[in-house]
């Protein structure tokens, strides 16, 4: 019996090792989109239809740890609104209604960007990863991974994810809904050195797969360390934030 157990364990080892490797890859790729210390950055979203810019907006983003994000809409049609993410929970605050409203990660922030695309960038926490092979993507040698939602707060049911070997930069992600529909693609296009980190993702393109010709470009800028009181990440404090 002991021998059978040992054989079983030995046979399982490659699968366990593969799973650990896949998760380690995702963890390292998360580092390119998250920073160890609390920070603030500007974010610009521009919507395109048939490669023509249609509209856009700018946001101010405060991030603390890997599970707290506060987004302020500083221009555009929803100027003055806030989106708060804490762990699996999300709220939108519309100054006119003076009330934080509980929202879901899949709800739209703007254009092709869902709230979760901005606020939930920690894939290693939300998804189980499996290594599916290796592929070359625009000249980058990548691991291809399949991510399955682990956390109830994960924005998508399944993600096909390409991570560049060596740098661990995420290069592409294909997102699938619970229904199995191929929903959208993210191309992680630009990484830059910032004052307090070696590399940070500064440009992502989100392509709508349900309605061809539509895409949203997300650009990050003015990334700087910023620590704010913890109450800023309490949903009850949202009505007190500057409009």
């Amino acid at each position: 019996m002991k021998i059978i157990s040992l054989l079983f364990a030995l046979c399982s080892l490659p699968f366990i090792l593969t799973a650990q490797t896949a998760l380690a890859i995702v963890e390292k790729s998360d580092n390119a989109r998250n920073l160890a210390q609390p920070f603030k950055m500007g974010m610009r979203l521009t919507n395109f239809e048939s490669d023509q810019p249609k509209d856009g907006a700018e946001f101010e983003v405060l991030v603390s740890g890997r599970d707290k994000t506060l987004i302020k809409f500083v221009s555009g049609r929803d100027k003055g609104n806030y989106v708060l993410m804490v762990g699996d929970d999300m709220w939108i605050y519309l100054p006119n209604t003076r009330k934080p409203i509980r929202i879901t990660p899949i709800q739209r922030l703007m254009g092709e960007a869902s709230n979760g695309d901005v606020a939930r960038t920690n894939y290693s926490r939300d998804y189980d990863a499996t290594l599916r092979g290796e592929e070359t993507l625009n000249g980058h040698q990548c691991w291809k991974l399949e991510l399955q939602a682990r956390s109830s707060g994960a924005t998508y049911r399944r993600i096909e994810y390409w991570v560049e070997q060596g740098t661990y930069f995420p290069r592409r992600a294909d997102f699938y809904l619970v229904s199995g529909k191929f929903y959208k693609t993210a191309l992680f296009e630009k990484f830059e050195k910032i004052s307090f980190a070696e590399q940070f993702l500064t440009r992502t393109v989100l392509i709508d797969q349900l309605r061809p010709g539509r895409k949203t470009v997300m650009e990050y800028f003015a990334v700087q360390p910023e620590k704010v009181p913890d109450k800023y990440f309490n949903q009850n404090y949202l009505p007190n934030l500057p409009r």
Binding site: D88, D89, M90, R102, I103, T104, P105, I106, G116, A149, S152, G153, A154, T155, Y156, R157, V178
Partner: peptide, 12 residues
Amino acid sequence: FTKVLGTALEIH
């Protein structure tokens, strides 16, 4: 109370 179930459903 409010609660989010999955990625698309919120109940209150």
